[in-house]
Amino acid sequence: MSITAIVINAFVVFCLTLSLIKDREKTKAALLIAWNATKRLAPSVLAVVAVIGLIVGFIPPRWIATSIGGDSGVIGLLIAALLGSILFIPALIAFPLAKSLLDMGAGVMAMAAFITTLTMIGFIFLPIEIKELGKRFAFLRNGLSLVAALIIAVVMGLVLG
């Protein structure tokens, strides 16, 4: 268990204890919400675990390097941004996926673009966003989010790449 994981768990145990002291019923409700969310996320977690195995075991690192590697430049950036925009992967499990791709030679710029578009732009939610907020608002927000994600990714790539 890494130090980060220990710190995270200690922090949550602290919050949970505090919550228990303040209100038993509310804490119970919180745990129920957590349990339901876990059940909902479980298939995705297991799917990502399998996909990571496939990436590490069976995809030649050369493919990753040429498509989304550090030297793939604009093409890699656009591939990653496109995948991030259209795929629906819960953000929580996207980070391990990105880590496995980075380990296999993917570039920081492409991975930053992937994660940022994944969380910021949700095509799956677009119909709801249009229904609730109107086409104008939804298209403006998602369109500008794409631009924002690309800027973030390029700067990340320049700083950490």
């Binding site: 919550s19 919180a30 745990l31 957590a34 969310a37 876990t38 996320l41």
Partner: peptide
């Protein structure tokens, strides 16, 4: 993950 789920619930 379990810790983060509990955090969200809280």
């Amino acid at each position: 993950l379990p810790a983060l789920m509990i955090l969200m619930g809280l």
